[in-house]
């Protein structure tokens, strides 16, 4: 299921004095099973890009192909798109509305041709994926019967994500999924994303959090004022911290610490963006220090 975005431009308020060019001639390709991060300053067009890929907006120019099919072609099956591509919007907990968690998670399955048992199984799987384990082997987790509106903030977010996962999308788009999460919630979410990725799901994640994207994404796209201005591995993107700054994306703490250690002569190579790699380097340094 590769996603191809070809020469896409998008404007708001066309033919009015308030015309805003949200995106300009964007082209990129996301392969199956990739984990791609999207970064950019507020108002750079990230949300517009997501809405375009989900078919919620129609581009002024250009084409968006999913699995080789143009999603804005008249004959394209929109239901198919809804099944293959799931979006977790910013603050997804605001979409909860049903009387029980179970019903809310099953909402996305309403129009699918599944038996009752299959649906229940999907709901149970989705809830387990976001960390709600069932006590018994067959029944749903305890939370399934509760009202989603009476849960805590973190639980609500997980239920909302389960509601998207239940439909079994092969492509998942996350829009600022870390906003408003505490450190443990952040880590929990990132591990969930990594787990889904390892199971073969294509993941696109929009975030301001450079450390999170660098730690998990294969590739990062940088948008600035509606243009795609950089594309590459985390190491490439943050090779020159000054350039990243100019694109209105700050390097993560990991990369900054690596830079400091490099300047002090403790590191051979400052291009470390992954937390675990930095940790290993520091451990090595400490061991070397003890040795002398």
């Amino acid at each position: 299921m590769p996603i191809e975005v070809k020469n896409v431009s998008c404007r708001y308020g066309e033919r009015t004095p308030l015309e805003v060019e949200a995106l300009r001639e964007i082209s990129f390709r996301v392969e199956d099973g990739e984990f791609v991060g999207i970064m950019g300053h507020t108002g750079c067009g990230k949300s517009t890009l997501i809405h375009l890929m989900a078919g919620l907006l129609i581009p002024g120019e250009g084409r968006i192909l999913i699995d080789g099919k143009d999603i804005n072609e008249p004959g394209y099956d929109r239901e198919e798109l809804r099944r293959t591509l799931g979006i977790v919007f910013q603050y997804p907990e605001s979409q909860l509305f049903e009387t029980t968690v179970e019903k809310d998670v099953a909402f996305a399955l309403k129009h699918l041709d599944l038996s009752k048992a299959e649906k229940a199984e999907r709901v149970r799987w989705a809830l387990e994926a976001v960390g709600f384990r069932a006590d018994s082997r067959s029944g749903p987790p305890e939370i399934a019967g509760k009202s989603p509106l009476a849960l805590s903030g973190g639980e609500k977010r997980r239920v909302a994500i389960a509601g998207v996962l239940a439909a079994g999308p092969r492509i998942l788009i996350f829009d600022e999924p870390l906003a408003g999460l505490d450190p443990s919630g952040r880590l929990e979410f990132l591990e969930l994303a990594a787990r889904l990725h390892s199971q073969g799901t294509t993941i696109l994640m929009v975030s301001h959090d450079a450390d999170a994207l660098c730690g998990y994404a294969d590739r990062i796209l940088v948008l600035d004022r509606g243009r795609l201005c950089a594309e590459g591995s985390p190491e490439e993107i943050f090779r020159d911290p000054g350039r990243a700054e100019a694109l209105h994306i700050g390097a993560g703490e990991v990369r900054r610490i690596a830079q400091v250690l490099y300047e002090k002569g403790r590191l051979q190579n400052p291009e470390i963006t992954k937390y675990k790699v930095l940790l290993d380097e520091i451990k090595r340094m400490i061991k070397a220090g003890e040795g002398t």
Binding site: R82, I87, P92, S94, Q95, K110
Partner: peptide, 12 residues
């Protein structure tokens, strides 16, 4: 935002 999110979840 809610309208878009629910549409993406398959609401009609």
């Amino acid at each position: 935002a809610i309208r878009k999110a629910q549409t993406a979840r398959g609401a009609r």
